[in-house]
């Protein structure tokens, strides 16, 4: 949908520092941003062939629309190159299509959720997106700025500022940027997006609302069961997953040596999903004792199981990370935006 809506243009004189001006106007996430100059924003729009007033979506509950120009300005501020813009556009499209109000919901909640972007396909290599060593660390422009662009759109376009419409209680590091690629080249399993019905050479982004990433250091286990039991412990002990009891999925980001062992021992995705799902539970009595479920313990609570994942396919297995140690990461996908995979396309092509 096109519109005539155009962003305001602020002309600065030479005495004004543009970075400080962005701070003064409240446009940042706390870190300095690249000033969204008219030239840079136009470069971003030209790369994808969108007009400034093109409407990308609306959040009805906030009565706010996102235009291509606003998206481009926030991408510039995040430090994105124009080549990253199609990923940001695809991610926003996924959110709008999942449920446009989810963009409000995931910030309005007090339990502090961020947005995870998992990228598959050839675009990972084209933009030098880190898929291996130090996967979740700073250091790679694409990883650091693509997720940041999403957050800046949330802050600036949808007013999701801390203490205003972002009501996270403890907050989350995931609100800075969580964007990474699957290590498809060195994975024993087919790429994640292929499991979701895409062909391997189609680039995709998987969008999910998540809570903080947890690392698992099973370094002495020599069986798949030992490794997966450590993941089971993490899932079963996660109070919020149990509390919501619906729509919760899990990303198990399997590190290099964990993937090597699992593959060597013949573990396939479906076998692992089943093994983990049926063991990841606590009794209702345990959860009431821990304060995750309301109420006094009654007799049947001692035997009633509450599962961290309702179905085996809710455990999503991705191979990524470095080979310097023997680790995996576990990420809870909160129901605000259940993992959604969409193709990355450049509207211009």
């Amino acid at each position: 949908m096109a519109s005539d809506a155009r962003a305001l243009i602020h002309d600065l004189d030479y005495s004004q520092d543009p970075v400080e001006e962005c701070y003064r106007r409240g446009w940042t996430d706390g870190m300095p941003v690249a000033p969204p100059t008219v030239e840079k924003v136009n470069q971003m729009l030209d790369y994808v062939g969108l007009s400034p007033g093109d409407v990308l979506g609306e959040v009805p509950v906030r009565r706010r629309v996102l235009t291509a120009e606003q998206a481009a300005a926030n991408c510039v501020m995040a430090g994105c190159l124009p080549e990253y813009f199609p990923i940001v556009l695809a991610a926003m499209k996924a959110l709008f299509e999942h449920d446009p109000n989810c963009i409000h919901e995931i910030s309005a909640v007090t339990n502090s959720t961020g947005i995870m972007l998992l990228v598959n396909g050839p675009i990972r290599k084209n933009i030098d997106l880190n898929c291996t060593d130090n996967l979740f660390s700073p250091g790679y422009r694409a990883n650091s700025t693509i997720g940041r662009a999403i957050r800046l759109i949330f802050i600036n376009v949808f007013e999701q500022r801390p203490g205003v419409l972002d009501r996270g209680c403890m907050g989350s590091l995931t609100k800075y940027s969580v964007c990474f690629g699957e290590d498809e080249e060195d994975s024993p399993w087919e790429p994640y997006h292929v499991t979701q019905g895409f062909v391997a050479d189609q680039s995709t982004v998987t969008v999910a609302a998540i809570q903080d990433v947890e690392m698992f250091g099973n370094r002495y286990g020599t069986t798949g069961e030992s490794l997966m039991d450590s993941i089971v412990e993490g899932m079963a002990s996660h109070g919020l997953a149990i509390y919501f009891g619906r729509g919760i999925k899990w990303f198990w980001v399997v590190g290099h040596w964990h993937a090597e062992m699992l593959n060597r021992l013949g573990w396939t995705r479906p076998l692992m999903q089943e093994y983990i799902q049926e063991r990841s539970y606590r009794t209702r009595a345990q959860l009431k004792g821990l304060g995750y479920i309301k109420g006094e313990v009654v007799v049947q609570d001692e035997t009633e199981r509450v599962y961290a994942a309702q179905a085996a396919e809710d455990i999503l297995i991705v191979k990524a990370g470095g080979n310097s140690g023997i680790y995996s990461n576990l990420i809870m996908n909160y129901y605000g935006v259940e993992a959604t995979t969409v193709p990355i396309v450049n509207p211009k092509s």
């Binding site: 602020h10 004004q16 001006e21 000033p35 629309v65 606003q70 510039v76 800046l152």
Partner: peptide, 11 residues
């Protein structure tokens, strides 16, 4: 001089 595109939303 430098011109900045306002990145904020409006109702």
């Amino acid at each position: 001089s430098i011109s900045l595109v306002d990145p904020t939303g409006a109702d």
